[in-house]
C-alpha cells in the first residue's frame, strides 16, 4: 500500500504522550500528489498511538469518491488505502457538509463511512487539536 509500514516506526520514546493530531485534505487526487502522500503520514502516525482525526473538505472530498478507475491514466488508485484505515484504527474521518453540497455529492458517494460536519462544527473540532497537518 505504501513504501513504509507503521510497524517500522514503533518508538518507545513517545509512549504515554497522546496529542490530538488532525490531518486536513483539501485537494483532489491525481492532479497532485498531496492526498496520496498525506495517506502515508496518516498511516505512520498510527505507530505513535496518537489521537488522530482526518478531515476531507473542498476538493479533498474527491479522495473518498467511490469508483476511482485510474487504469487509463496509468496512475496508482489511491482510494483502497482509505478502506484500510479502519484496520489501523483510524476511525475518526470527517467530511465538511458545505464541501459535499457545493459539489453535489452526498455521503452515499463516498467509499468509507464518515461523519459529516458543518463548517462551524468542523471549526470547533479544529480548535480542540494540538497539531494540524495540511498539504
Amino acid at each position: 500500500m505504501t513504501d513504509e509500514t507503521p510497524e517500522e516506526f514503533e518508538d518507545d520514546e513517545y509512549v504515554g504522550v497522546v496529542k490530538k493530531f488532525m490531518f486536513i485534505n483539501r485537494k483532489a487526487p491525481y492532479g497532485s500528489i498531496y492526498g496520496h502522500e498525506m495517506q502515508e503520514t496518516i498511516l505512520i502516525s498510527t505507530a505513535f498511538e496518537q489521537d488522530v482525526s482526518v478531515v476531507f473538505m473542498d476538493d479533498g472530498v474527491f479522495l473518498l469518491k467511490k469508483g476511482h478507475d485510474t487504469a487509463t491514466i496509468n496512475m496508482k488508485n489511491v482510494s483502497p488505502a482509505y478502506r484500510a484505515f479502519k484496520g489501523y484504527d483510524i476511525e475518526k474521518l470527517y467530511v465538511e457538509r458545505e464541501s459535499l453540497d457545493a459539489r453535489g455529492l452526498s455521503p452515499n458517494d463516498l467509499l468509507v463511512p464518515v461523519e459529516v460536519l458543518s463548517a462551524t462544527e468542523l471549526g470547533d473540532l479544529m480548535e480542540q487539536q494540538d497539531i494540524i497537518i495540511s498539504a
Binding site: 486536513i24 498531496y34 479544529m126 487539536q129 495540511s134
Partner: peptide, 13 residues
C-alpha cells in the same frame, strides 16, 4: 510572536 501567542496553527494550503 503570533504563532507563540495562539494555541495551534492551521495552514490553508
Amino acid at each position: 510572536d503570533l504563532v507563540a501567542g495562539y494555541d495551534t496553527v492551521q495552514a490553508w494550503l
